[in-house]
């Protein structure tokens, strides 16, 4: 990469209205930092309280989903370093916040994830509420403390269809991209 590409990178992000981006390994500490940065960004942008909380909620669920996913697969299969990494971007366009995430997931778990996404996208807010209550009452918490409620919660907070894509990388992994609009 030539040095002037740094400017192209910058310009591209500027055009895309990216207000925060991170690529690398996810960790609990990173989430704390990102929430911190987003807090001041959203104050600067005069984002209303409810929307701010929704952004926090969505970022927390995304991170903790990604973090747990990565953790689980790392234990299952020894992965090259790059496959532990993920990307998160936050854009601010037309007074809406867009959260974009991307991470590797084992191809064996794409079907299950896709099923969850198809389901939440089909439901309206009232149905999502019912599903959430039902899952809250009947699902048990895994050893990692995940409740299987993450995607339902993201869909409730977003109130928009979740965008997603699975890109096949090799015979073991796909790259999972998720886009969440918060208005």
């Amino acid at each position: 990469m030539a040095l002037k590409d740094v400017y192209d990178f910058y310009q591209r992000m500027e055009d895309e209205k990216v207000i925060l981006s991170f690529k690398g390994e996810f960790s609990a500490e990173l989430l704390t930092s990102i929430l911190h940065i987003m807090e001041s960004k959203m104050i600067e942008l005069s984002i209303p309280m409810q929307m701010k909380k929704r952004v926090f909620n969505v970022l927390v669920e995304c991170f903790q989903n990604l973090y747990h996913h990565i953790d689980i697969s790392a234990a299952e299969i020894p992965m090259v370093e790059a496959k532990n990494a993920a990307i998160v971007m936050v854009k601010y366009v037309d007074e809406k916040i867009l959260v974009l995430t991307g991470n590797y997931i084992p191809r064996s778990s794409t079907d299950e994830l896709k099923k969850k996404l198809v389901l939440v996208n089909e439901l309206d807010q009232k149905e999502l509420k019912e599903l959430y209550q039902q899952r809250l009452l009947h699902n048990s918490v895994s050893k990692k403390g995940t409740a299987g409620l993450g995607i339902i919660d993201i869909a409730r907070k977003s109130k928009n269809e979740l965008g997603y894509e699975f890109i096949e990388v090799d015979d073991k992994y796909s790259f999972f991209c998720l886009s969440i609009v918060i208005e």
């Binding site: 909380k53 926090f56 909620n57 927390v60 669920e61 903790q64 809250l136 009452l137 699902n139 918490v141 403390g145 995940t146 409740a147 409620l149 993450g150 339902i152 919660d153």
Partner: peptide, 13 residues
């Protein structure tokens, strides 16, 4: 509560 994650929601229950 200001806000809570889904993992907490189960514990609150």
């Amino acid at each position: 509560l200001e806000y809570f994650n889904t993992s907490s929601s189960k514990c609150i229950l």
